[in-house]
Amino acid sequence: MQARLEQRSFLFLLLIVTALFLYLMQPFFGAIFWACAIAIIFFPAQRYFTRLWGERPNLTALGTLGFCLTIVILPTLFVAASFVFEGVNLYQQIQAGEIDPRAFMDRIGETVPFVGTALESFGVDIESLRERAVNAVMEGGQFFAQSALNIGQNTARFFIHFGVMLYLAFFLLRDGGYLRELIGQAVPLSREREQLLLGKFAEVTRATIKGNVVIAAIQGLLGGFIFWALSLPAAVLWGVVMGVLSLIPAVGAGLIWVPAAIYLFAIGNWIQSIVLVLFGTVVIGLIDNLLRPVLVGRDTKLPDYMVLLSTLGGLILFGINGFVIGPLIAALFTAFWGIFIRDFKHPEDQEAEGR
């Protein structure tokens, strides 16, 4: 009786201490998450450096981290800096009145007056609709521009989290094998189940990040290119926004280029509008339809609808990190239920299988 009470008390205190520790780490959740992601994604590179340089953990971890910085992190920082610059510039233009959405709306009314006539015939208040559209454009432009401005103003906080991420990623790369064994000993699961779940965690994390990031980078690059080719303003800004939105399956970058095409058509630039529609549908849309099932759905072994719902749910609950966390939770959900169905069947079902 005393031993059981002592065990329960210890487990209770263990839960409290663990909860307090997780709460303490909560401000650095994003940095910790991406450090783990770097260690998982670049494990093959670390294995290559180990074969090249031998068993020298510090050197191979530094080499892997340097490789990651060169091909992923530094280009991402360059694009982010360009995004902030263009976002701040757009915000200043809106504040100074250099960009006037009312002038755009007036030009649309002059170019396609039959639209206004048709709407009036259905009893639509054109002036009210115009004001709402202007307010929506103003608020949307200010939102994106203010977001970029906030990123620029939070530079110190960003570099603190960036430093924590790199520091932790080094130790995860160096001591990853030991930490994995330690986690395996702490989790009360059989060796087979532990290997299955850890393997699923690594597989989904690697597939989701690589697949979504590659798709986002390609679509953002193509979107920014077509905006630049058509002489649309803030091409880098809208390219980055399209890249981020492309993390949402099915809709993604279309949330930006479709309104831009409608605007070009409305002001009379029909050729540019048609070019943008064709490019967005055939090139940008094809990238999403072809690559996402191959890079994300196939490797995670999740149906397309579950990838979509888990990505959207993750983005809503966890912000930008949710595009990985959502599918990861969904994959672990299917893995746990797969283990349950396999290992905890009713005895009569197991007997029927044995016959």
Rank of each mutant, 00 (worst) to 15 (best):
D299H: 13
F21Y: 15
P249C: 01
M1N: 12
G297V: 02
V84M: 11
A234P: 01
L189C: 03
G338Y: 09
H161K: 07
I271D: 12
K301R: 12
T208W: 06
L290K: 08
Q350G: 05
E127P: 05
I329M: 05
L149F: 10
Q92A: 03
I32Y: 15
N154E: 06
I209L: 14
L11E: 13
G220C: 07
W53T: 09
S121P: 11
A261C: 04
G322W: 03
R355L: 13
I329F: 08
T208H: 06
V213S: 04
L286H: 15
F10A: 11
A80M: 07
N269G: 09
F144Y: 12
P44I: 00
G152E: 01
G116D: 13
L245R: 03
I316A: 05
V79L: 10
D125G: 12
T18E: 01
L59Y: 04
G313E: 08
L11I: 14
L149E: 06
A145T: 01
A61I: 05
F83E: 07
M25K: 08
L119H: 04
I339K: 00
F225Y: 06
A136F: 09
T300E: 02
G297E: 05
E131L: 10
L59I: 12
L221K: 00
T18D: 06
W257R: 03
F340V: 12
F122Y: 15
L149H: 08
S273N: 15
T311I: 05
W337E: 11
I16L: 14
G54Y: 11
I41T: 04
G176Q: 00
I32M: 12
R355I: 14
T334H: 05
A35H: 08
A235W: 06
F144D: 02
T117D: 11
R180K: 15
L276F: 12
W34F: 15
T311Q: 01
F122K: 11
R132H: 13
F336K: 01
T205K: 03
F83S: 00
M138D: 01
V282E: 10
E353A: 14
D343W: 04
V213C: 03
L291R: 14
D175A: 02
G116Q: 12
L196P: 00
G184W: 05
W53R: 08
G184N: 10
A169D: 06
L328M: 09
A217Q: 08
R157I: 09
I16V: 04
G141E: 01
E6R: 10
D343R: 04
H161I: 02
R193A: 12
V79T: 13
A250S: 13
F170M: 13
A216D: 02
S190M: 10
G140H: 00
V17G: 09
F158L: 05
L222W: 04
A260I: 14
R298I: 10
K345T: 08
Q93G: 03
N269I: 09
I262W: 01
R174G: 03
L295D: 02
V275D: 06
V124Q: 06
S246M: 01
M25S: 11
Q7Y: 10
D125Q: 14
I209E: 09
I126F: 03
L245Y: 06
G140A: 04
G199H: 08
A266W: 07
Y91N: 04
V241W: 00
L172T: 11
K345D: 07
V283D: 04
G184L: 05
L65P: 09
L222F: 03
F170E: 15
A335N: 06
T281C: 08
Q95W: 15
A330R: 08
T18H: 12
L20K: 12
A352C: 03
L14F: 10
